[in-house]
Design a protein around this nucleic acid. Structure first.
Lengths: 153, 153
DNA sequence: TAAAATAATACCAAATTGGTCTTGTTTTTC
DNA sequence: GAAAAACAAGACCAATTTGGTATTATTTTA
């Protein structure tokens, strides 16, 4: 079924939640409560997202996390990449030397191209599309979206 | 990394091998030898592919497997579906009731749409594209391709 | 300076997946 | 017509990956 990890799924939920409150700082506890996910799980997801730069982490008493970019500018592909690394469907498509039968495989570069096709499709979907419930049409990712930072708390 | 199962990867290798000999009947042993894959693994893959109708199985002494449709008519998506079931990235996109937090999830139908986007991308790639080593341009899947059945052996 | 709140790290358990073996069926030859 | 050989089909077992949890370290404010 071509699955992604559950943590990646959770990541989109968390990101969508943060996207609904642009600029505001939300602690892991708050996010866990509103998303009905377990706190440690949310913390792990937030950590990974922060490490990749998709969200900013603020330590201290009133710290938490907030989106680094507006929801319209972050693609679904970026979220998946943050959680699972480079988008590829097979090992051989990631980097040479991973597959033992690399030289005797007839469809070497083709899987790489397939992965790129999928990635391109995911690149065209934005976080704003996910966050908006039941929106009829999907927007394209815009790299020029307004930085709607209210600088919360 | 958005991975597919190894068996699915092997399935494409096996299908590509069969595609190079249209109409011919190849036993599991023969396929295993030429693909350098383990015989039981190949047998398992062939069984699954046959059950889905992508290949035909012929029992008996000189039996084996052969492609049911010409390579140009079978899409990568079809192979993935045969090995992994319906193409979806999350459980909730498969069918209602799978996810416990379905009613409280804000991005219910969106994952379904994402899966469809990916599937559409995979649908446009044919087995002939995989089989052809290093071909520069990818062909689209044609449902009207010539049934190049030589009826082998 | 101390306490409280939060992020980061490391560890453990469970589920899925990949691989192997055994059994059953068909066909051909004697 | 019977027996043997070849092949497909199904069931079982082990390993890797993934998800979840607990603990530790750091920062900030009172």
């Amino acid at each position: 079924m071509l699955r992604i990890g559950k943590l990646t799924d959770y990541a989109t939920v968390v990101m969508a939640e943060l996207a609904e409150h642009p600029g505001e700082c939300w602690s892991a506890s708050q996010v866990a409560e509103v998303t009905r996910l377990e706190l440690p799980t949310v913390a792990k997801v937030l950590k990974t997202l922060a490490k990749s730069g998709l969200i900013d982490s603020v330590r201290g008493v009133n710290g938490g996390y907030r989106l680094h970019d507006p929801a319209e500018s972050v693609s679904v592909a970026a979220i998946i990449r943050a959680m699972e690394g480079p988008i590829a469907l097979t090992e051989c498509a990631l980097e040479p030397g991973r597959c033992s039968r690399e030289h005797e495989c007839s469809l070497k570069g083709n899987w790489k191209r397939i992965g790129e096709t999928v990635e391109h499709a995911l690149e065209s979907l934005s976080l704003a599309d996910l966050a908006a419930p039941g929106n009829p049409g999907l927007h394209l990712v815009t790299r020029t979206g307004p930085r709607s930072a209210k600088r919360g708390n």
